[in-house]
């Protein structure tokens, strides 16, 4: 009885200590945030740093309000978000499709192997100008940038997962006379589902890179355009505002995909 109470007490203490630690972590995180922005503000006001180049949080805040009021920020965010979402879904889908083709035909996969290595090592954003000429300077070429950056790596990762599916699952299906397509649908794809979902998370980050670079190049709309425009007219407040907005939305999107991933994998 006594020892049972004791255990409970110790457990409660342990939980309390965990809670206390969490509070301190949060506290320091907030402290860093506040310190960063207040130092920035003060340094800029006292000219310790060049206010033209580094702007200041209050100026950025002011610009944020302006841009929200005239509607341009929301429109640009919408455009960039749409491009990124399409880009990474397309990249993941096409990468998985390509992986399926490689799995389907071991011969094709062996033939294509060196090309995959080359394409994977190549910096995909360098294809930007070609894409823009081919697809026209607009929505589609930017989405293509967001997709192309993640296709090959998705193909390689997902194909590896396909190959690692326990061959005995395929054997079970073969004993039931399954065709290759049935084997793919019943075993290979569902067994690799967790891998595919986790590439989504990587691809979301990659697609931001592709889309922002694409917008740099096309330079007509979106957050990437805001950065390039701010740079051209030497309005670094605008550049920094865009950067912060990108940071916020990239994080939100990442967290969302992470949430979806945990949800889907827990359901399985």
């Amino acid at each position: 009885m006594n020892s049972e109470n004791n255990t409970q007490l110790l457990h409660q203490k342990y939980i309390d200590s965990l809670k206390r630690e969490k509070k301190w972590v949060r506290f320091y995180q907030l402290l860093i945030f506040l310190l960063f922005f207040s130092t920035w503000e003060i340094a800029s006001q006292r000219n310790w740093i060049d206010p033209l180049l580094f702007s200041s949080p209050t100026k950025i805040w002011g610009l944020l309000i302006d841009k929200i009021q005239d509607g341009t920020l929301i429109a640009n965010i919408g455009i960039t978000l749409t491009e990124t979402v399409f880009g990474f879904i397309l990249g993941t889908f096409l990468g998985t499709l390509l992986a399926a083709i490689l799995w389907w035909s071991p011969f094709v996969s062996r033939v294509l192997d060196p090309y995959l290595v080359i394409l994977n090592s190549m910096p995909k954003v360098a294809l930007g100008p070609i894409l823009i000429v081919a697809l026209g300077p607009g929505f589609s070429s930017i989405i293509a940038m967001g997709a192309i950056i993640s296709i090959i790596i998705t193909t390689i990762v997902v194909y590896t997962a396909f190959k690692e599916v326990d061959p005995n699952y395929l054997k079970v299906l073969q004993t039931f006379g399954a065709t290759r397509a049935q084997s793919f649908k019943e075993a290979v794809l569902p067994a690799s589902f967790p891998t595919i979902i986790s590439t989504l998370k990587v691809n979301v980050g990659l697609s931001w890179v592709g889309v922002i670079v694409g917008e740099f190049l096309v330079a007509s709309k979106g957050l990437g355009y805001m950065i390039i425009y701010g740079f051209q007219v030497f309005n670094f407040t605008l550049v920094l505002l865009s950067l912060l907005v990108i940071a916020v939305f990239a994080t939100i999107m990442y967290q969302f995909v992470d949430f979806v991933e945990r949800k889907l994998i827990k359901d399985k």
Binding site: N168, K171, A191
Partner: peptide, 25 residues
């Protein structure tokens, strides 16, 4: 043919597992 281990498909329910052969044919 029952393999050396059960090899039930973990991503399928028991029902889906036992109907598998019938479904495939």
């Amino acid at each position: 043919y029952m393999l050396q281990q059960d090899y039930l498909f973990p991503w399928k329910t028991i029902e889906e597992n036992i109907f598998l052969g019938l479904k495939l044919s």
